[in-house]
Amino acid sequence: MLKKPTAVISSLTMPWVALLEGMAFSPEAFSEDRERWSYSGKRGPAYWATLDDDFASCGQGKNQSPINLTQLLDGELPEIELHYPTQGDKVINNGHTVQVNFPSGNILRMEGQAFELKQFHFHSPSENTINGQSFPLEAHFVHADKRGNLAVVGVMFEQGAANEGLQPAWNQLPLHAGGQETLDVPIDATKLMPSSLEYYRFNGSLTTPPCTEGVRWLVLKEPVSISKEQVEAFQRAIPFDNNRPVQPVNARVIVQ
C-alpha cells in the first residue's frame, strides 16, 4: 500500500466514457479510431471538434486538459491511497499511444471514494506542463469508479537513470500500430510511482477525443527517472509527438 500526503477534490459526476482514452481495444475499434482523429494535419488537435459531433467538447469545453500548472493555490490537500496488488499483463500500441492494461483489483482511494485502475498510457513530450516546463514523457494512470467517474494520476518522467519499473513493458514494446503483447513479466504500477504522492489538483477532461470533461486530475509533483534510450524506444513505437497542446485554464483553480 502507498499512503502519502497529496489536493482538494470536488465531487464531479460524468457518464461512463466507453474507451477511457483507449481502454477498450479491438481491431474494429482500432481501425475506426485511427481514421477519426490524429495528432497532426487536418485531423489534428486544432480540428478535433469539427471531425465528429461527439467531439464538440474539444472546442467548446471550458475545463479542457492538458494545462500549464501555474499560479498555484496553496490548500490543505487530503491524502490519496494507492492499493495496487494486481499487475498489468498486456501492452498495446493503439496507434495513438502505448498503454498497459490491468485486471481488476487496483484501487485509488480519495475522500472516501474508490477508483479502480484500468490502464496507464504515455505521452511524449508531456501534455501537462509545470510552470511552463515540459518533460520528455508523461504517464496517465486512468481510474474509474463504479458510476464511470474518472480520476487520472499524471506522473512526469525526467531524463536520467533507466526506469526499471517500465522495463517489463519496454522489453515487449509493440513497435507497430495495432500490436499487442501479453507481458512475460507483469508490470507493477507501484514501481512507477515517486517516493512522494504530493500532487497538483485541477478539474479537467480527457486529453483525446471526445475530450469529455468532469475528470479529476492529480498530477504528482515529484518526477521519476527515465533513460534517454527508453524515451527513444517509446518514440520508435509512436513516431510522432502525441501530446495535445495545453488548453486555457479559464476560471479553474489549481491547488497544491
Rank of each mutant, 00 (worst) to 15 (best):
S225M: 01
E127G: 12
I80R: 02
D54Q: 13
I107M: 11
V91C: 06
P186M: 10
L150A: 08
V231N: 04
E164N: 13
G44N: 07
S126H: 01
T208I: 14
G75Q: 14
G112F: 02
A177R: 02
V255G: 08
T190N: 14
D74H: 13
K3Y: 09
F30V: 02
L108R: 04
G160I: 08
V249K: 09
F157K: 00
K90D: 03
E28C: 10
A237T: 00
E181A: 11
P85A: 12
P186G: 11
I80E: 03
A151P: 04
K90N: 07
V185H: 10
V253E: 08
V255K: 10
R216W: 05
H140M: 14
A233I: 00
G112K: 05
R236A: 05
N93L: 00
Y39D: 07
T86P: 03
V91S: 02
I80K: 03
Q167F: 02
A151I: 05
R147D: 15
R34G: 03
V255L: 15
D54T: 13
P66S: 04
R201Q: 11
L77I: 14
H123N: 07
L197Y: 01
D74C: 10
L117V: 11
Q172R: 06
I9G: 07
T86G: 08
L108C: 11
E28D: 14
L166Y: 03
C211M: 06
P27V: 11
K4Q: 12
S124V: 08
E76A: 12
F135N: 00
Q113L: 08
Q60E: 14
A18D: 13
Q71K: 15
I92T: 01
S10E: 10
W217R: 08
S38T: 15
I226P: 02
N93A: 02
A24S: 12
L69T: 04
K146L: 11
A29P: 13
D241L: 08
L77Q: 14
N203L: 13
V142W: 09
T182D: 10
F25E: 00
E32K: 14
I80W: 01
L108G: 04
T86M: 13
N250H: 15
M14C: 13
K62M: 13
T208D: 07
K4L: 14
P223G: 01
V152Q: 01
G132A: 12
F55S: 03
H121D: 07
T97G: 05
A114G: 14
N106H: 10
R236T: 08
R244L: 08
Q230D: 07
E229D: 15
I238G: 01
F102H: 04
T70S: 11
F135E: 01
A162G: 08
M193W: 07
S40D: 12
L150Y: 05
Y84F: 15
P5N: 11
K118C: 12
F240W: 08
S65D: 10
R216A: 06
M156D: 00
V8Q: 15
P194M: 12
K228G: 13
S227V: 03
